[in-house]
Design a binder for these strands. Structure first.
Lengths: 225, 225
DNA sequence: GGTACCCCATGCGTATTCTGATCATCGAGG
DNA sequence: CCTCGATGATCAGAATACGCATGGGGTACC
């Protein structure tokens, strides 16, 4: 599960993050409301833990804002304010759960997982991202630095494979097997041709090339050399 | 919202039901686990309040059972047991929230509504809209730019599916499964034909085409591109 | 018995993919 | 530092696969 923590208390945030990571989740942290709101709106999470009192933008405001934007990511509000009225306010603002500090980590974990359970009846990944290159698998669109890139079917599959293995060297055999479903060597420069066309579209108009040749081995998709 | 209360204490149950009804909800009550389980599995609710200690079938067992049956109705567990470990157990069993008695009714209401919000945001839609194309599912009518479009049943289902997945690429397999309920490939151009006919009606007389072919992948319904 | 709807087959036009030829680059070894 | 073989890049034409429109036959429901 991808979880976002918005909490200004460094120590509390680190503690939470550590625990959630140990439980096998992928955690992002924001130390103030502004950063939190930015991450919440630009990234996709399965659940969020939001502290109620925050410097910058207030916790409740964050929740109201993302709900207003149509984002339905489950939110657990964390607060020192434990009066019934405070809790009701937190839930009314669009929170899905409300936990009062101090809390037991085991309970927070159980609650977060209960929240995530329903939505993250985990659909497979829908978007891939490498540097400023983004691929939306559902819409079948690719953008780099916000600019649309339009690819042919095979190029799309090829790029998808490269992105799923970003940072690793991908051999020609791997590509033949997984992108072409050839279980033999066609003895042509098939792959080179497609890499070339992909480069034209993905790297040509940009400063930083992402597709790199690894002589004698294959190709790799990553930022620098 | 339709809410089911499973609680053996007559007085508590009546009090709860009264409050929820005053808040505008539709409430069913069960006084023991057996009846509760029966209602939970045979009726459809937006949320359930389940007491943990019940004569007959125990509260946690009820939750586990309905979850095991694939029912994802949000459940709030109510209990006198307030230790962290009890709460964790309740959530682990498949509960979505856990409230300890005695509780303030305002909080229970807020939590129940928070639970319901998530799913009931997905109450059956009655109209779909994509750009200037509108579909009324109840009246079974489609208009584009105010102008009536008259579709055959299959065309209607096809368009409905496309509209529900607007912006995403819809594959032939998805269409066969969901519009035709074929679980095999008919090896004909069935889909192409229907798309073609649909285009005649939906796109032909308008400037901006909405149905786009994504070669090698499927079709998509969206504005430009 | 008629009508509306749905499915299938055909042939055509075009986008996409693959091939082979040619050109460029890399790096080891003299 | 230069040469040469090996490896990779690019290009354009050929081959192919894919999607589209259309008409006809079948079927189910009035």
């Amino acid at each position: 599960m991808r979880i976002l923590i918005i909490e200004d208390d460094q120590e509390a945030s680190a503690y939470l993050a550590k625990g959630l990571k140990e439980a096998g989740h992928n955690v992002d942290q924001a130390g103030n409301g502004t950063d939190g709101l930015f991450l919440a709106t630009t990234e996709r999470y399965d659940a969020m833990v939001v502290d109620r009192m925050l410097p910058g933008v207030d916790g409740l405001t964050i929740v109201q804002t993302i709900r207003g934007a149509g984002n339905t990511t489950p939110v657990l509000i964390l607060s020192a304010l434990g009066k019934v009225d405070d809790r009701v306010k937190g839930l009314k603002a669009g929170g899905d759960d409300y936990l009062v500090k101090p809390y037991a980590f085991a309970e927070l974990l159980a609650r977060i997982e209960a929240l995530g359970r329903r939505t993250s009846a985990s659909q497979p990944e829908t978007r891939l991202k490498v540097e400023d290159l983004e691929m939306d698998l559902l819409a079948r669109t690719v953008t780099r630095n916000g600019q649309d890139i339009d690819l042919q079917p095979r190029e799309f599959r090829l790029l998808e494979y490269l992105m799923r293995h970003a940072g690793q060297v991908v051999t020609r055999t791997m590509l033949l097997e997984n992108v072409w479903e050839y279980h033999f060597d066609p003895q042509t420069n098939l792959i080179d041709v497609h890499i070339s066309r992909l480069r034209q579209k993905v790297d040509k108009d940009f400063d930083q090339p992402l597709i790199h040749t690894v002589r004698g081995a294959g190709y790799t998709l990553r930022a620098q050399r």
